[in-house]
Amino acid sequence: MLGRGTGPHVFVADLERPELDDRDRHHLAKALRLRPGDALTVSDGAGRWRAARFGAEVEVTGDVVDDPAPEPPVTIGLAPVKGQRPEWAVQKLTELGVDTIWLLVADRSVVRWEGARGAGHADRLARVAREAAMQSRRCRLPAIRVGVPVADALTSEGVALADPGGSVPTLARPVVLVGPEGGWSDAERAAAPARVALGPTVLRAETAAVAAGGLLVALRHGLVAEGPAPSSTHGG
């Protein structure tokens, strides 16, 4: 997150010679009503940013600042559902500061984003994440992968399934997978190295994903205290 800097925030390809693409320039000039000379910040999306001024050519006014990546990186995987709810989830997870977002293919997935269809969804979600990162003044764009099989995701270090009866979320398990509306299959539960619970109520998939992201990011930044270590790998 930006520790300083004023004005709107936008991403550019080159911090030494920042150029705005047509969509960003239109948004800044028409929607936000920036005028030549108004302050803004520009970022490369990989943790580096600098202060600048808006105009026909962007004028840099500050040194490049390297914002260190927070540790541990937080990954949320969710199985997509119908409609625009996956876009909403990606938007909110980006605002929260989640580092990696996976759109999963689970045994009971009804919506399956794979192949060419998955590539189209990936492009759209990348745009959603970019706009959310600009709004929330992030210096690092989240990595988004579409069509990730749950079996592959479960091989990641520090992974856990979001599932009732699981343990308290902890930074020892910073990769949390949220299943489809039909829930996890018996095989997926059996393959999971750990499970974490997200509360006493039944959450929709996109709500559970945002809840998991919010909890882990809050733990990472010390906003909430770490709970007791789980007594077993599966909790319960």
Rank of each mutant, 00 (worst) to 15 (best):
residue 135 Q to I: 11
residue 129 A to M: 09
residue 2 L to V: 10
residue 9 H to K: 12
residue 150 V to P: 04
residue 197 A to L: 09
residue 110 V to R: 01
residue 208 A to M: 09
residue 152 D to T: 14
residue 192 A to S: 15
residue 30 K to T: 15
residue 201 T to V: 07
residue 108 R to E: 01
residue 46 A to E: 14
residue 133 A to Y: 00
residue 64 V to E: 11
residue 29 A to Q: 14
residue 145 R to Q: 15
residue 230 P to V: 06
residue 117 R to M: 11
residue 99 D to K: 08
residue 196 V to N: 01
residue 9 H to C: 11
residue 7 G to Y: 07
residue 120 G to Q: 11
residue 192 A to T: 14
residue 193 P to F: 02
residue 166 G to K: 11
residue 80 P to C: 11
residue 94 T to D: 06
residue 102 W to K: 03
residue 4 R to V: 13
residue 109 S to V: 00
residue 119 A to H: 15
residue 176 V to T: 15
residue 227 G to V: 11
residue 207 T to P: 02
residue 125 L to W: 12
residue 120 G to E: 06
residue 191 A to G: 08
residue 132 A to P: 04
residue 53 R to G: 01
residue 76 I to G: 07
residue 200 P to H: 12
residue 134 M to Y: 00
residue 81 V to Q: 10
residue 78 L to Q: 00
residue 58 V to Y: 03
residue 16 E to P: 08
residue 70 P to N: 14
residue 55 G to R: 05
residue 117 R to I: 07
residue 174 P to E: 08
residue 214 G to V: 06
residue 104 L to D: 05
residue 40 L to W: 01
residue 50 R to Y: 12
residue 174 P to T: 07
residue 153 A to I: 05
residue 21 D to R: 13
residue 88 W to H: 04
residue 136 S to N: 10
residue 132 A to I: 07
residue 160 A to Q: 01
residue 72 P to R: 11
residue 190 A to C: 10
residue 120 G to D: 09
residue 108 R to K: 08
